[in-house]
Measured scan of single mutants.
Amino acid sequence: MQIFVKTLTGKTITLEVEPSDTIENVKAKIQDKEGIPPDQQRLIFAGKQLEDGRTLSDYNIQKESTSHLVLR
């Protein structure tokens, strides 16, 4: 499924993911596309910070959901 990640600069990154993917996996995909190390990434969805060990389905992130990327 596709999800979108919006950066603070207003850029939207499109990612191909599975509901069973962990947040860690998603951060690795963002690193592949954008070159941002996962330890600098914070992903926010529905006002919550997403934890590495959880999956997209844990957070009820469905296709075409948009989460926000904040850099630390």
Rank of each mutant, 00 (worst) to 15 (best):
E24F: 14
E51S: 07
V26N: 00
Q62D: 14
L56T: 01
E24W: 15
D39P: 07
T66S: 10
F4S: 07
G35V: 02
D32A: 14
A28E: 09
F45V: 04
S20W: 14
L50T: 03
K29I: 05
T7H: 05
T12H: 07
E34W: 15
L8S: 14
E18N: 13
Q31D: 05
L8A: 13
L69F: 05
S67P: 15
E64L: 12
D39H: 13
Q2Y: 12
Q2R: 14
Q62W: 10
S57G: 10
I61E: 01
I3F: 05
T22M: 06
N60D: 10
L69I: 13
L71Y: 06
I44L: 11
K48L: 11
K48V: 14
T12R: 08
S65N: 09
L8R: 10
E64W: 13
R72W: 15
I30S: 00
I61F: 06
I44T: 11
Q40I: 10
Q31I: 02
N25F: 12
V26Q: 00
D58I: 02
L69Y: 02
G53R: 10
S67E: 13
I13F: 09
K6C: 13
E64I: 13
E34A: 12
G53A: 10
K6E: 09
Q62H: 14
V70C: 11
I44Q: 06
L56Q: 00
K48A: 10
L56G: 00
T66Q: 09
I36R: 02
P19Q: 07
L15S: 00
K6M: 10
K11A: 08
M1I: 10
L50I: 04
D52Q: 04
G47R: 03
R54W: 10
K27H: 02
T9V: 08
I44V: 09
Q49E: 15
L15V: 07
P37V: 05
T14H: 07
L56Y: 00
P38K: 15
G47Y: 04
D52N: 11
K27C: 01
R54E: 05
Q49S: 09
A28R: 15
N60V: 04
K63N: 15
Q41A: 04
D39V: 09
I30W: 00
D39M: 09
T12D: 04
D58N: 04
D39F: 10
I23R: 00
Q49C: 15
L15W: 01
T66I: 12
D21Y: 05
I44G: 03
Q41Y: 12
R42G: 06
T14A: 09
L43A: 00
R42V: 15
I36W: 13
S57R: 12
I36Y: 12
L56I: 09
V17I: 04
T7W: 10
V17H: 02
S57T: 08
L43H: 01
Q40P: 02
T7S: 06
R72N: 12
R54C: 10
L15F: 04
D21F: 07
K48N: 09
K6Q: 10
P38L: 13
T66G: 10
R54P: 03
Y59W: 02
G10T: 03
L69D: 02
S20L: 09
I36Q: 02
E18F: 14
V17A: 05
P19A: 09
T9W: 15
D21T: 11
G53N: 12
E18C: 13
P19W: 08
E16M: 13
E34K: 04
V70R: 08
N60H: 09
H68E: 10
V5T: 01
K27V: 02
L71S: 07
G53Y: 10
Q41W: 05
I13S: 01
Q49N: 12
Q62I: 11
K63G: 14
I3N: 01
E51A: 08
N60M: 07
D21V: 04
I44P: 00
Q62L: 12
E64H: 13
G10Q: 04
L69S: 02
H68Q: 09
Q40V: 10
L50R: 00
G35E: 03
K63D: 13
L69P: 03
P19Y: 07
A46G: 10
E64Y: 13
A28Y: 11
E51H: 08
V26I: 12
T9N: 14
Q40L: 10
L8F: 13
K27Y: 03
Q40C: 14
K33R: 10
Q40T: 08
K33Q: 12
E34S: 13
G47N: 06
K27R: 04
K29R: 07
